[in-house]
Amino acid sequence: MHIPDGFLDAKAWIATSAAGAAAVAYSLRKTKLALDSKQVPMVALIGSFVFAAQMLNFPIAGATSGHFLGGTLTSILFGPWIGSIVMAAVLIIQALVFQDGGITVLGANILCTGFIGCFVGYGIYKAGVKLLAGRGRAAVTFVAAWLSIVAASAGVALLLAWSGTFELGTALKAMTGWHMLIGLGEGLITALVTGYLLERNVPLAKEATAR
């Protein structure tokens, strides 16, 4: 479930709609500069995978479930600008076609699960890889994805509190508490898929002779 219509008050959804639209417009420009046309099928396929994986709610404690989001995955594979465009596309299709997530709160969903998820996950991943000089990449990926979910849920909590839906401290505790569990699934899936799709970068000359 993404934020449905009605959870945010007018000031919050109007502000997040404007901010979300601006962020998507900026990402589109960044993507246009960064995207290699040969990558298009791969990016589209990952978007499709993210959509499918989001449907698979897995049970966690207390008759509750969680599902994959995918911001960290797409960002590790393609960078956070392309990642956030993929996430925005997934959220738009979910809202328009499947009525999952509201229309007025589309901007809020794009900012939280899209941008926060992508940039927090990517930032932690990059920092971790640099710090450990590339060792323990799977563990770094797991932590990055886990944290991205906790951060995204904190973003939603902030917006809910700003809307007066409930008090900030309580909102943060409740949202991040559940998502610390849900994030474990995110970490696992992200580490598995990136491990499968990324390979050591062999210098070009070597690769040419190998073929």
Partner: peptide, 26 residues
């Protein structure tokens, strides 16, 4: 076969009794 239990946000909305505020504008 995915779990049909409420997810994180829905669980919180239920526990803190604001799930009823959800509406669909379309």
């Amino acid at each position: 076969w995915a779990s049909s239990h409420p997810d994180g946000l829905e669980r919180v909305a239920e526990d803190y009794e604001f799930l009823h505020r959800a509406e669909a504008v379309h």
